[in-house]
Amino acid sequence: MTIRYQWLLLASVLAVSGCSSLGVKPWERDILARDDMLMDADAFDLAFDEHIYFSKEASSGGQGFAGGGCGCN
């Protein structure tokens, strides 16, 4: 396993562990429930960005599945 794969594995293990002490009670979600606090808020911005940077840079994706690929030049 190369160093880069070990790095990815370590980061993902850290991401799924130690989360249980975080969080809020159901009645404390007023702010988190707002549209602009959703992780996929501004979906069009994200989709346009994905298309632009897919066509101009060698890396793409990460946040989700872009879908509807293109043969962009």
Binding site: V16, L22, G23, V24, L32, M39
Partner: peptide, 10 residues
């Protein structure tokens, strides 16, 4: 993984 940290952050 999406994790709520507190009332104002995730």
């Amino acid at each position: 993984v999406t994790q709520v940290i507190d009332r104002t952050s995730l």
